[in-house]
Design a protein around this nucleic acid. Sequence first.
DNA 1: TACATATTTGCAATTATGTTGCAAATTTTA
DNA 2: TAAAATTTGCAACATAATTGCAAATATGTA
Lengths: 139, 139
Amino acid sequence: MGEAIKELLKKNHMSVTDSRLQILDMFYHAPGALAHADIEKRASDKIDRVTIYRTLQTFEEKGIIHTIPTADNSVKYALCKDQCAEGHHHDNHVHFVCDNCGKTICLDDVLVPEVKLPKGFQPQQSNMVVNGFCNDCRS
Amino acid sequence: MGEAIKELLKKNHMSVTDSRLQILDMFYHAPGALAHADIEKRASDKIDRVTIYRTLQTFEEKGIIHTIPTADNSVKYALCKDQCAEGHHHDNHVHFVCDNCGKTICLDDVLVPEVKLPKGFQPQQSNMVVNGFCNDCRS
DNA sequence: TACATATTTGCAATTATGTTGCAAATTTTA
DNA sequence: TAAAATTTGCAACATAATTGCAAATATGTA
């Protein structure tokens, strides 16, 4: 298991455990975002459901992963880029969801555009998800 | 119960039933989007949970309501504007969710801006949700 | 209007998803 | 290496959503 992953846990003041290494490793090798169920399925030595929930929650709190607000309201997680600090996310990129294969991808270089709101609305954070076909699935 | 609502059901080839009239009426009088639980609570003569699920699903299929992809992955529904046809939605407006009161509102006049995607991605539909404070809740 | 047909509803049962408390196991600290 | 702190897995619970089916309601037609 990668030494870099171990370091990332230590840097964030988390104990280094098998579950955490395994889950974090999955994120680093996954082609896109992962749902709770994906992780449960892919875990080689079985990890308890509850542990997965708690690990994901901890990772999110630490700014290692972020949730993606998909159009079908399923919960997916993806790695944050380095600018995410503990307790405060700065994920302002667009997400892409393939309608065919379901793959969910962070478009780190595509920023969510600003929009002008009607009077009275005070914006704090914007999310944008684009559905369509990914490179592998387009006709 | 409004005659117009009855007509809407007929126009969409749906049987006119109490549950459907009542739920549709709620949408027409609600200040914003409604979740399943909201409907269950507000129903004067109790509607079965299952009936609510099925009614919402039918309405969505018929293009009468659409789901809103909120950042916290809770499921909310709101009325579609007339351009939504059966089986095909055209909801390309921005949604606003108040972080304080939770009210979820369709900003029908604010269109989701286009974004330029990296090579290989074929967009079909975009969703945008802005979180912040609504008129009633801002400081 | 009345009846046959089609649709919808409500109930019970089942499945999926997420949370909590706690003892045992593991990791960290010293 | 041993004590302290953290994490894990289990069991129990809570909530959300789906399915099959019989009873109730709505629709079309004579």
